[in-house]
Amino acid sequence: MTIEIQNISKKYGNFQALHDINLHIPSGELVALLGPSGSGKTTLLRMIAGLESVEDGIILVDNENVASLHINQRDVGFVFQHYALFKHLTVFDNIAFGLQVRPKHKRPSAQTIAAKVDELLALVKLEGFAKRYPAQLSGGQRQRVALARALAVEPKILLLDEPFGALDAKVRKELRRWLRKLHNDIHVTTLFVTHDQEEALDVADRIVIMNKGKVEQVGAPAEVYESPVSPFVYDFLGNVNLFRGRVIDGQFSFSNQAETTNEAVGYVRPHHIKIEREKTSDAVISATITFIHTIGPIWHIEMRRDDDTYIEVELNKEEFLLLNLQVGENVYVSPKEMKVFIPEDFSI
C-alpha cells in the first residue's frame, strides 16, 4: 500500500510542528523518518496513524484519503514508543486484543484467533511465551509482542514510533536486523521514527530526514549519506569537519578569517581527509596532532588548526601505519572530497 502525504501542516498553539510536508512512500518499502527531537517526525507518524488530527492537507493510503477517518477505520498497525502493552493481560491476550474487540459479526472464532496468535508468536520468535505477562519479559521481547499485536489485525501499513529507543545497544542491533528480515517476509509498507542515524542507515530502504517541521531530504541510505543536500543533513548523518572559506569564480578557497563576501563553508567527512607531512600546494591546511586513538580497525586523529579549531580525521590501519603519525607533529591536511554550502541559503 502506498502512502501519499500532500501539503500536511500542523500547529500546536503558536508552535508550527509541521510545515507543508509532501511525501510519497511506495508500497512495501521500509522507510525511516529520521530527525532530531522536535523535528516533527513523531507528529507526522501519529497523524498518519490517526492519533493526531489532520487540519491542513491530505493523507492518502492506498489512494484513499484517510485524513478524516478515525484511527480504528484506517487499518494501521501502530507500535508505541514504550510498547504500551496491556500490563494486566497475558502475551496471548495482548496479541489477540485487536481481534477480540471486533464486532460480533466480524470477529473470528476463538480457535481462529488462537491459531492466528500462535502463528504471530512463531513469527516474532516467542513461542512458549503466550501465558507470560508483559512484566515477565525483557525489553526486546516486549517490543516483539507489541509488533505481533499490531500485526494481528492485518494492517495495511505498519507504523513504529522509536521502535528501538528504549533498548540497550546490543539488543537494539539484533532487533534491527530482525525487523529488516521480518519486513522482507511480510512486505507491509512500514514507516518508523528514529533519531538514530545509524539505525536508519542500517535498516531502511529509504530515509526521510526531517528538521524543524520540514523534510530536508528523501533518499536511499547511500544516497543521503554520500550526497547530502543541506548542511543539516551533512551534520546529522555522521561526523563532519567544517572549513570556513569563500567562493571565488566557482572555486572554494580556505580562509581563516570570517569573510564579508562570498562566504562559504566546506563540509568534509573525517575519512575524506588526506594527511601529508610536506606542504605540496597552497590549498592545504596546517595543523598539529593533539590526540590519537583507535577503535578496532579505524584510527581517529584529532588535530588543532592555527586558529584553534579542531579537525577530526579517520584513517584505516594501513594508511595509519604508512604515515606513522605522532602526537605533537605538524602536518598538512587537504580534503579528498568536500561539499560546499553558502550560509545564506541554509541555516543549521
Partner: peptide, 25 residues
C-alpha cells in the same frame, strides 16, 4: 494515554477500551 491509544488503534470502541484496559489498571 498510550495503553488506551493502543486499544483504540487496535479497533476497540470506547466501552471496550474502558472495560478491558482502563478499568483493570
Amino acid at each position: 494515554r498510550a495503553e488506551e491509544e493502543a486499544a483504540i488503534s487496535l479497533g476497540a470502541n470506547g466501552f471496550q477500551m474502558f472495560k478491558r484496559v482502563t478499568l483493570p489498571a
